[in-house]
């Protein structure tokens, strides 16, 4: 029987972080394999993978790490979690329907990073890809999405999130909307201006905000 390892995790976390930052998939997998004997998949995600991604996100936020390192770390963790918890396996976090989209821009990296981070944290999320306002509103209604994450790069696209919110409201839909992307990093009030419920400063911060909003849901 495996047990949660609440024992000293400082060393494995540091080793895991170092492997991720060196973009060393093999070393990262080895560390998880070594500790999988002491813990189950969820505790490894909670105590090793998620904290590592949080530290990487925080260090990017402070300017100490690059986006390339954040992106590659997320990709590696997503692969590892997919191996630990195959998609749609019941052990993944139970949640209302969630979706992720890029609004209008053709820059998809931010969405990809959030997708990796959500999956690396055990969530299932539908990837709507790139959409315009009308298509996104329609899709959210069809799929009865409860949490909608929207990534943008350009300011005009960010401002159109307000239109998404308005149209959804007219249709009686009130999903929680979490936004992210460059314009929100340069104007910390912009997410309120467009009627979002939260803003993720980094990919892993989007996961933190998702968890917070899910917890507050009735």
């Amino acid at each position: 029987m495996t047990v949660p390892f609440s024992t000293n995790l400082v060393q494995p976390l540091e080793e895991f972080l170092a492997a991720l930052l060196a973009i060393d998939r093999f070393a990262a997998r080895q560390i998880l394999t070594r500790y999988s004997e002491q813990s189950d998949a969820f505790h490894m995600i909670e105590q090793l993978i998620a904290p590592a991604l949080e530290q990487i996100g925080a260090q990017w936020e402070q300017g100490d790490l690059s986006l390339a390192q954040v992106y590659m770390s997320g990709r590696i963790c997503e692969e590892l979690v997919d191996a630990l918890l195959p998609p749609a396996r019941l052990q993944r976090i139970s949640q209302p329907p969630m979706a992720l989209a890029v609004l209008e821009d053709y820059h998809l990296l931010g969405k990809r990073m959030v997708y990796s981070s959500l999956r690396a944290s055990g969530y299932e999320v539908q990837d709507f890809g790139r959409m315009d306002v009308a298509t996104l509103v329609m899709k959210v209604c069809e799929e009865r999405i409860a949490v909608l994450l929207i990534s943008v790069l350009m300011l005009p696209s960010a401002l159109r999130i307000g239109e998404v919110r308005r149209q959804l409201k007219l249709l009686g839909q009130t999903p929680k909307i979490i936004v992210g992307g460059a314009p929100f990093r340069f104007d910390e009030e912009l997410w309120r201006e467009v009627g979002a419920d939260a803003m993720g400063k980094t990919a892993i911060d989007a996961v933190v905000q998702t968890a917070r909003l899910l917890k507050a849901m009735p």
């Binding site: 973009i23 390339a68 992106y71 053709y106 820059h107 998809l108 990296l109």
Partner: peptide
């Protein structure tokens, strides 16, 4: 290359 091939594919190429 961010515009030529997309950011994600470019980072993959780079690495």
């Amino acid at each position: 290359p961010v515009m030529q091939m997309g950011f994600e594919a470019y980072l993959d190429l780079m690495h």
